[in-house]
Design a protein around this nucleic acid. Sequence first.
DNA 1: AAGAATCGCAACCGCGAGACA
DNA 2: ATGTCTCGCGGTTGCGATTCT
Length: 313
Amino acid sequence: MEGRREEIRKGPWKAEEDEVLINHVKKYGPRDWSSIRSKGLLQRTGKSCRLRWVNKLRPNLKNGCKFSLEEERVVIELQAQFGNKWARIATYLPGRTDNDVKNFWSSRQKRLARILQNSATPSSSSNSKSHRATWEVSTFNDVPTLLAPKLSSSMDEESSSKDHSCSSSNREKAGTIKMVPVPALVNPKLLHFDAHSVLTPFENNPCTDSQLQIPFPDITQTQHDLTFSPESQELLAGLEDPHFFDVFGPVDASQLSNEVPLPVEEPFLKPMRSFRNAVKDENDNLVNPDAFFEDFPTDMFDHIEPLPSPSDW
DNA sequence: AAGAATCGCAACCGCGAGACA
DNA sequence: ATGTCTCGCGGTTGCGATTCT
């Protein structure tokens, strides 16, 4: 059997373990996770190694950066379209892992549930968190649809040590939205350039690197007509819907696909410019396009599927 | 200042799919 | 065709940090 030489280590990773894992990936690539243990490099399961790499050590991750408004919106829209396919949704959010998306969604669902509960039982709104929840709703309502320096609760000011690389001040300065879905980088056929898109130089910031500044596509008609945030709209709509609590259950994408057209269009697929290793010819075409992917795990695109055409939505 | 409630994140677990012998 | 192994995904849990009374 694979292992029985020593106890399998669990729990938080040490810096030394990270180093070993990184070195292994450098040598052999992000594969053969189980060999890390069989070689005696780490007393971790291959599964654990893979998870650590994917969620924390992989290059270009936005570790410690909170979800921007647009990221939140993308998650909301894609969740309605795909259901809880976090890995798939994460491919639209550069620097985000399925775990990030999953955690974000989970937190959001809890928040919504609490807001709803407090709305249903106003007398209970004297507790501390309900105050914050109420504030969040009103804050959402005040937020412009696309440009918002300070937004949801997830955008609360924070200057923790691990957030240093993308301080809120940076986010505020950013002003407009930067987004690029990974699948577009994989399948050029899917690229669909929006003439209105605006490219901006990158800042040397993990939270903005590999992103492009583009106008975010229109969302649903409902959202278009109202100034409410998606979250607030969802809440408001839910209060009138007798089946609102179903929202908190699993979503059947097949059912939703006919009712909730995904407004996130391919157009926010834009070429990524953080091709650290890419070489271009005189016509600015990538000569060694593969070099662009060197920063990514070789398997990270394995599960990416072509996007459905908008007509299928 | 202390305690309770909540948040946010990292990591684990179980299961299914695919590869391979 | 079948069994085993590895990998990847989604759900869940645990815990430190934060916020509020």
